[in-house]
Nucleic acid binder design. Structure first.
Length: 593
RNA sequence: GGCUCCAUAGUUCAAGGGAUAGAACGGAAGUUUCCUAAACUUUAAAUCCAGGUUCGAGUCCUGGUGGGGCUACCA
């Protein structure tokens, strides 16, 4: 890598100049900012501070030595404490040839042989997927792809929350008020079940309100409402293995899975392995018993089991109810251990919203107390909420943005815009549908992923998602234009693949090339930080730079054949990079649009 | 109350302790006999407040103000 060579050259020059080694933590090269001359820049200030010397003088001295000792470095300049280096033209031309031959430019082998498990999605089966799930799914899927590009073996898992009182509520409502299959009701399975859940909630509220009106306290009323008692009874039947209850539960969950399947497929996310809470909710009890015997956990008088985390600045945490049943944490201890035992991975990543930060702090802490040193391999990818202009989405206020509806809308907008621009005419119906899907979802995915995962983001349904500017379609359009150029070059039998003579690149060519050169390190960084946003920001920059290039400079119409073929090669590289990067965030790149 | 995260143009987002804080949308003004105008060019517009550390702070520290989340024998 160029970076490594430069660091060595710098260290060497520093050694020769000052008879000591530079502190390596301060050595790093960055791209020279466009307003200055040069390719790469190193900041001298930290060293000048150490040696108590003038940074400009040091820059001169080191720069001269670097040029003298390294054929790769052909010039330099010093501005204040910044040493800007010029790289040999030959290097850039070799770089172009290398990338053209490379199939997977951007991917690396840095983590070959290491295994990572990424858990994401993990939905409840009592309601359909919404905007929040979309962020989760896109993030999880994209992070998994980015890790693969960094050489990891990745297993994508989905732990489905398929049991519990909330599921029983839907079941009960269906028995009472529907009894229709999704086909009969004309609804997607997950939508039907979700509707039942809402129906239950509404009826329960009415009952509770009635009890309150009769003089009960709200807490009492919530507990004593007949529907609530029925739901609890149903949960007991389920846990007792009652055949009828289990059959209904299976039937309704299957409807939901059919619905989810459609949504996942449209969204373009997939999983290597599904786990179901109904299979795993009992795991973890034995770990709790172990903790008890080790003295890490303790009993209260009512037989409930707790972990005292007050010494670590946290609270006491319940791990087993007084009736012996397990809670979320119990199960998660179990599934974590199960996951570790099955895969023995380098890391286990959980893509879960930041509202559960506390849960994961506690989970890791308890596992550590129990002597599971692999607890440190658990990484909570804690992403921010998606908010609406009014704040959180609330099903009661009908502000939940449904995943299927949103995708429909995006695809519809893509169709409308394409037709307005008169670009759909020569496409077959099937090709057009594929294109609209690609554009609509490209817009959605880019919109969701360009934001730093950790941050809360805002979605305004009224404005919806743009197709111009810093958007998915902008990037897709750039790609389509490039492909069009390349098609034309091929049609006119232009030989642009044979080796190019080395000459001085102009600034537009150089800017593009430097961006492309930077791409592999963006992939590395995105992998380290688990941040698809870095990839998204990068492709936008690259697409913008290309559009500028395209507008300013002739490509096919260039008369000088060397220049022309170099520029076509650059087009090839940009298209390749856009496609690779788009692949990491799930944004497809069309040939025409 | 306790713990925790966040605060950047009118709006939505960028900025590994480094050069003059970048974009996009929206606003204003332009570009098409020319490789796809879903594009490009020009322009106005911002670091919540007060201290501190540093050669250098949007970024680190302390305090304040404002907002989000968590604080269940729910998940």
């Amino acid at each position: 890598m160029l970076q490594t060579i430069l660091v060595e050259a710098f260290t060497d020059a520093f050694q020769k100049s000052y008879n000591r080694n530079p502190d390596l933590q301060y050595v790093n090269f960055q791209k020279t900012r466009p307003e200055f001359e040069g390719d790469f820049t190193i900041v001298i200030f930290p060293f000048s501070k150490d040696l108590k010397m003038n940074p400009e003088v040091m820059g001169q001295v080191i720069g001269e030595k670097m040029v003298l000792n390294h054929p790769l470095i052909v010039g330099f300049n010093v501005v204040k404490g910044f040493l800007n280096l010029h790289i040999n033209q030959t290097y850039w031309f070799q770089f172009i040839e290398q990338v053209i031959e490379k199939e997977d430019f951007g991917s690396n082998q840095l983590n070959i042989g290491k295994h990572i498990v990424v858990e994401y999605s993990s939905p409840n089966t009592n309601k359909p997927l919404h905007l929040g799930h979309i962020r989760n799914n896109l993030l999880g899927w994209s992070v998994a792809e980015i890790l693969k590009a960094n050489g990891y073996q990745v297993t994508k898992v989905n732990l489905v929350n398929d049991r519990g009182i909330h599921i029983c509520k839907s079941m009960l409502a269906w028995q009472k008020w529907s009894n229709q299959s999704p086909q009969e009701a004309g609804l997607k399975g997950d939508k039907l079940v979700g509707e039942m859940y809402v129906r239950f909630d509404k009826a329960l509220k009415e009952q509770t309100a009635a009890l309150v009106a009769e003089g009960e306290s709200p807490e009492q009323a919530a507990k004593n409402a007949p529907l609530m008692l029925e739901a609890q009874q149903m949960l007991r039947l389920w846990e007792g293995g009652d055949e009828e209850t289990i059959a209904l539960w299976k039937k309704m969950n299957d409807w939901v899975y059919d619905g989810f399947d459609i949504t996942y497929r449209r969204l373009g996310v997939d999983f290597d392995q599904f786990f179901y809470e109904s299979d795993t909710y009992l795991l973890g009890k034995s770990i709790v018993m172990e903790g008890l015997s080790k003295g890490v956990l303790f009993h209260k008088e009512d037989k409930s089991i707790w972990c005292d985390l007050t010494a670590d600045g946290l609270d006491e945490k319940l791990l087993l109810r007084s009736d012996g049943t397990s809670v979320y944490m119990t199960q998660d201890l179990g599934t974590a251990e199960q996951r570790h035992n099955i895969y023995n991975p380098e890391k286990m990543i959980y893509v879960v919203g930041n509202e559960q930060n506390y849960h994961f702090d506690v989970l890791k802490l308890i596992l550590k107390k129990l002597g599971r040193d692999w607890a440190n391999d658990i990484e909570h990818l804690s992403y921010g909420m998606v908010e609406l202009p009014q704040g959180k989405m609330k099903s009661r206020e009908g502000t939940v943005v449904d995943a299927d509806d949103l995708m429909d809308e995006m695809i519809q907008t893509a169709r409308q815009k394409t037709e307005e621009l008169g670009k759909a005419s020569q496409l077959s119906e099937q090709a057009a549908d594929e294109l609209y899907h690609q554009i609509g979802l490209g817009a959605l995915k880019y919109f969701m992923l360009k934001v730093d995962p950790k941050k809360t983001m805002l979605f305004n349904p009224a404005e919806s998602i743009d197709f111009n500017g810093n958007t998915g379609p902008f990037i897709q359009y750039t790609h389509a234009r490039i492909r069009s150029i390349i098609r034309k070059a091929e049609e006119s039998d232009i030989d642009f693949l044979s080796k190019t003579q080395v000459f001085e690149l102009n600034q537009h060519e150089k800017h593009l090339l430097k961006l492309i050169h930077h791409y592999p390190s963006v992939v590395v960084q995105a992998g380290e930080q688990l941040s698809p946003a870095l990839i998204a920001n990068f492709i936008f920059e690259l697409a913008k730079e290309f559009n500028h290039f395209y507008q300013t400079i002739n490509i096919l119409k260039e008369n000088n054949l060397h220049n022309r073929s170099l520029r076509i090669k650059l087009c090839l590289l940009v298209a390749k990079t856009l496609k690779h990067a788009g692949g990491l965030i799930g944004v497809g790149m069309p040939e025409k649009m």
